[in-house]
Amino acid sequence: MRLILTTTLVMTAFAANSVLNRAAVGGGQIGSMDFAALRLVSGAAVLALLATWRSGTAWLAGFRAVNIGALATYVIGFSLAYVALPAGAGALILFATVQVTMFGGAVLTRDAIPARRWIGAVAALAGLAWMLLPGSGGVAAGPGVLMVIAGIGWGVYSLRGGAGGGPLHTTTASFVGAVPIGLAAWLLAGPAPFTGTGAALAIVSGAVTSGLGYALWYAVLPALGATRAALSQLTVPVIAVLGGAALLAEPVSLRLVLSCAIVIGGVAFGLAPSRARA
């Protein structure tokens, strides 16, 4: 039960990132690279203070180039894509890509994947695909591709799990290491005007729903495993759709509601223990 509650909290934080980014960048409150850079800086600052307070400089041993590169790829692609994507659609593309990436990683490492987990994954992906079929509101190709790139980055970052030390140390080192990449992208794009609201949304996304949320994510990853972690993240688009509708007035159709139900059903089936059949 504790694992379920913690995972639910993390998925909610992930969905909040989509809503915060869309509200700030899509709403013209801040530029995409300004948001990405501020998100990384604020997340790194909070995590470094917390990790140093808890264990001194031990987190400095957590730097891993793959972790840093994957996190930076995700954050930058995520912000660029949300210039045009709705919160729910962006989360859909992101975590569908994460699903494929993490299942691919599980296959490459020869993890045991029960048949019901495959069935649950296919059902959940079918529900996600139905969301974006013609007639439900298509997305622009450019932002869609950028979100796919972000999804690959997040998938690799998740597959890395605790590589580099404990969850807090690994997440702190990854954020601190990604800051120079984020600042370089910000300089290349050129600073854009932003409002206090846009900056505040970026800081909340970086310090709370990203920094602390990702540290908690790395803490539960070992217990979940690659395929269950991938399936769990398919609930994020559903939460993001609800958040986008409630906070950003994004439309919700019957088709969207039904596809969300299919996603939840697929995840529930795939994550249920085999003994539940009895």
Rank of each mutant, 00 (worst) to 15 (best):
A185W: 12
G190Q: 04
A184R: 02
V236N: 02
G138N: 13
L168Q: 00
A199P: 05
S205Y: 01
T235C: 08
G196R: 11
L159M: 15
G211K: 05
G206V: 06
V179G: 14
G225A: 11
P167D: 03
G153D: 14
S205P: 01
P180E: 13
A184Y: 12
V156F: 02
T195N: 09
G138C: 07
P237A: 01
G153K: 00
A141N: 06
P143C: 12
L216R: 10
G206D: 05
G225W: 05
T197I: 09
Y218H: 14
T197S: 14
F175E: 05
G164M: 03
L216W: 09
L183C: 08
A230T: 03
L168H: 06
A173G: 07
S136Q: 13
V204R: 07
P237N: 04
A192S: 14
I181C: 08
F175V: 09
A199I: 10
S174W: 06
V139I: 13
V208N: 05
A229L: 11
G135P: 08
L216S: 12
V145W: 09
L188K: 08
V176K: 00
G211L: 08
L212C: 03
V220R: 11
V220Q: 02
G151L: 09
I149F: 03
A192E: 11
T197V: 07
T170H: 01
S210D: 03
P134A: 07
G165R: 10
T197R: 14
A230C: 05
A226Y: 06
P134R: 14
G162V: 03
G135M: 06
V176F: 00
V204I: 12
A150P: 10
G144V: 01
V220D: 02
A199T: 06
T209N: 04
A173K: 05
V156G: 00
A141V: 15
A192R: 15
R160K: 14
T235Q: 01
G135T: 09
G161N: 03
G196F: 07
Y218L: 14
G155N: 04
